[in-house]
Design a protein around this nucleic acid. Structure first.
Lengths: 337, 337
DNA sequence: TTGTACGCGTTATCAT
DNA sequence: ATGATAACGCGTACAA
């Protein structure tokens, strides 16, 4: 059996209260006593029981990180950064891959809350819906612990949003192509999430601002998996085969842009002369093609850093901004003129 | 304040013992009583306190998943599959990105064990070293909880290994190129981990078996980051610039293979006629290049599935195999003849 | 089948 | 500065 605080107190010749004080860094304990207790703790390699500790402190210093799919290139990076930051601050991370289904998500959150996490981090904008009733579960969760949103925004007490201004970034990306003289721009996207919607708005706004005709026929939703590059290529081919002409593509994700590059190659189109392409996320995928893909960097590491700082502040009882917005940045590479 | 088992027992007009029995699915409770208690639980949405429960059961049904870097394409997939399987079996996953440093890993494991996880899953072969003294921490951990190894093997009580026969797979991949008439085969690798060593052995074995000259000058270690494709391309260029000639490349990772494809393009080499390439892991990267990359599939999902099954068996007190080995499979695509 | 009472290992609140 | 002791909420012998 593992040692308890009683064992240590006996061996050190003090009471359990004193041991507890030493353990929790109380200042009201004589240096000599502290030294003595620490030596015993060291000698027997005593570790306080986590469950019992959780009961007393009402916390195990654990944060629930929820994401739809942690094998997604972008989400995986987000999870990685978050875990690293949290660990550095003495918190552990309970990872939950909830999938994209609403009911599954709700159940998962219920479960995780019952495990007494100190906070919930929802990674990715899929967690915020356009329909208010579908966000009810966020309000509910926020009644129990602070809820942190990465790449989404939701206005509600105890909910804190950290995100990139995807709309502005997409507006800028689209505009840069238009300024280069390309105005038949295809818009490809794969998600109707919060940020998915914002990106689309950015594209539309740019088309409108430059007085281009209604782009409805140029906007296409790819509903398949983003790691199926071949399916994406076929998808774009299908659009072209319908007789829709385009000399530029703005994509909501780098994988869609990779599909676009492969489409161009298959059809003997020169990049960027015949077809210019812009991706999103500035992932390693941008470096896999020839030429390399121009992409929007939404500074994920920055976002995660800020999110954790905000969270720590909230947990410490400080007043924190409910929303932190950063700017994206277009990284120029070979697929744009 | 949240409801306790006492509140529920009062409202249901029974003792806490009965509530506890209902909660834990004991059979010795009258159907009517059970029904009554369940209704109260439902009505007040009562959730047992996790800490108190952990104290009694000596478990919070939580597994520690350790990996060096969960943003790595391959590790991320492994973590995703593991979490999914564990969740389906009623276990939560504590994610720990330990990095590649030994001391950091040790500390992290100590910490995580003190949080009372039911088991440790070490994802990726980096956790097993060739030097026995560096594996001491695994032995220590295994004294406390079962330790599961994914893609590595270590012989020690309470340690269970689930892996792909990377040596045989690499042997087969290398041999297939030799049979196609290419015998100046470069071997690129990026890790000296357990499986890294095995893969290299598979390559060497194939060269030897086909009576090819000592390949020492053809074996090259890339020490940079695998998500830096450009650095990989430069690395290969450097090898060629040294005057080493090769018409085929066997790589220990798909990202190295992507770098090889880009190297070929830069130098106007035809693929596969002038340069044949085989990657490893069969990741989405194989679909990003033109032509697509032939790669070894080590059936990750299978491995994770088996690992979790083994773990559940061990936790249930059943006798389980200490080692489960699966075969890899070469997926033919455009970079090989 | 059900209830009582105790143990689990801490933290926190009083005294001293 | 330190010690005694009461929570904390649940599981589980043991008793009924």
């Amino acid at each position: 059996m593992a040692l308890t605080i009683y064992d240590i107190s006996k061996k050190a010749g003090v009471s359990i209260a004193t041991v507890s004080r030493v353990l929790n860094g109380s200042d009201s304990v004589k240096a000599a006593t502290k030294e003595k207790v620490l030596r015993v703790i060291e000698e027997y390699d005593y570790k306080p029981n986590a469950y019992a500790r959780g009961m007393g402190l009402h916390s195990l210093r654990t944060i629930g990180i929820l994401c739809a799919d942690s094998s997604d290139l972008y989400l995986a990076k987000a999870v990685y950064f978050l875990e690293r930051e949290l660990h550095a601050s003495g918190y552990e991370s309970l990872l939950c891959c909830t999938g994209y289904d609403l009911t599954d998500r709700k159940n998962y959150i219920q479960l995780i809350l019952s495990k007494k996490v100190d906070s919930l981090i929802l990674v990715g904008s899929h967690y915020v819906s356009g329909k208010e009733e579908e966000n009810e579960y966020i309000r509910e969760a926020a009644k129990q612990v602070p809820v942190m949103l990465l790449n989404a925004s939701y206005n509600c007490p105890n909910v804190y949003s950290t995100l990139c201004n995807d709309q502005a970034a997409t507006f800028e990306a689209t505009s840069s192509l238009i300024r280069a003289g390309i105005d038949d721009l295809l818009y490809l996207y794969d998600s109707n999430s919060y940020s998915g919607t914002k990106k689309l708005q950015g594209y539309k706004e740019a088309m409108k601002r430059h007085k281009l005709p209604d782009p409805s026929s140029l906007i296409h939703y790819y509903g398949g998996r983003t790691d199926q590059i071949e399916a994406i290529t076929d998808f774009i081919q299908g659009i072209a085969d319908k007789g829709i002409t385009f000399h530029g593509i703005v994509a909501s994700d780098d994988s869609l842009a990779v599909g676009a590059v492969k489409y161009a190659k298959k059809n003997g189109l020169r990049i960027p002369q015949d077809l210019a392409i812009i991706g999103y996320n500035n992932s390693m995928l941008t470096a896999c093609t020839v030429p390399e893909i121009t992409s929007v960097d939404n500074r994920l590491e920055n976002l995660t850093l800020r999110l954790v700082q905000t969270l720590l502040g909230v947990l410490a009882g400080e007043e924190m901004p409910a929303q932190s917005v950063f700017s994206g940045k277009l990284i120029q590479r070979g697929t744009t003129p």
